[in-house]
């Protein structure tokens, strides 16, 4: 059943013109980012102090110009794009797993367990996100990618938990769950076999919309100097660098800003399309 649902969702998505265009743009962007080491003669971190702050086009081999240390802007922006994308995808996946587990257990257990678990979610919602991540970053050292990932994912799971909990709460009263229980299925088996397949649509849709959020969060932290550190770069740290030099070398800001905007725009539009297709609540 799940297979045919996904297949029909795929057909619906192919008819969604905006989502299709976004998927094509996204694929092209990812392809260029992955192929960048072979497209550019310069390595991302290669310093060339003889050619600092070249404007785009001033040197044929530096199509997007260079930064103050003579590093190729194209190679560095594409490296930033790869890192931002990687952290965004991983954080969205981690937060989806935590959110689904938390919400499914709370909703299926119900009663006091549910009340306590969702109260925790409410309290975490009230925590200003930045503070939470700053604490994590200071606890375990700045610039560590796993810490960054954990910090970002720790905020993303809250909404997933709420969505899944609501669905699980509605499902646990239904006849087929009672039937499964009467046939001796354990709680874990009911969650895995009966609850999870029924929440898959909204969860996939919401997770797709989480990816751009996670990318923005990561870049936000890197912009504040709390995220990815030199010599590595994410789009956020490149934008922060570019913003400092934008008076003399605006291309240092424009290249990563354009890439981040295109990335989040295509991910958002694709995510909206997925939600239209997968989430029954948004069907007209």
């Amino acid at each position: 059943m799940a297979g045919s649902t996904l297949a029909s969702a795929g057909r619906d998505l192919a008819r969604h013109r905006a989502a299709l265009a976004a998927a094509v743009a996204l694929a092209a962007l990812c392809l260029v980012a992955l192929a960048a080491p072979w497209l550019s003669p310069h390595a991302a971190g290669a310093i060339d102090l003889a050619r600092p702050a070249l404007a785009p086009g001033a040197d044929a081999s530096h199509g997007w110009g260079t930064d103050r240390l003579g590093r190729d802007v194209f190679a560095r922006t594409m490296q930033g794009l790869r890192i931002s994308l990687l952290i965004g995808l991983a954080a969205a996946l981690v937060s989806a797993v935590i959110g689904v587990a938390w919400g499914a257990v709370a909703g299926y257990a119900g009663g006091r367990i549910d009340a306590v678990m969702m109260r925790i979610v409410d309290i975490l919602y009230a925590l200003p996100f930045v503070f939470f991540v700053i604490i994590l970053a200071t606890l375990f050292g700045r610039g560590s990618v796993p810490v960054l990932l954990a910090a970002i994912a720790s905020v993303g799971w809250l909404t997933t938990a709420r969505i899944v909990r609501g669905q699980a709460l509605a499902l646990r009263r239904q006849g087929f769950i009672d039937a499964a229980r009467a046939m001796g299925s354990s709680g874990g088996r009911i969650l895995w076999r009966h609850i999870l397949p029924n929440v898959a649509g909204p969860v996939i849709a919401y997770t797709a919309l989480t990816v751009p959020q996670m990318i923005i969060y990561e870049s936000f932290l890197s912009f504040l100097g709390l995220g990815v550190q030199e010599p590595l770069a994410s789009l956020g740290s490149l934008i922060s660098e570019g913003a400092r030099d934008m008076e003399s070398a605006p291309w240092l800001l424009l290249a990563p800003a354009a890439c981040l905007t295109l990335l989040t725009l295509s991910l958002n539009v694709l995510g909206d399309g997925l939600r239209d297709v997968l989430d029954p609540r948004t069907h007209p």
Partner: peptide, 9 residues
């Protein structure tokens, strides 16, 4: 798609 740290600069 334009967060504050992109739109602002």
């Amino acid at each position: 798609a334009l967060p504050a740290f992109v739109l602002g600069p």
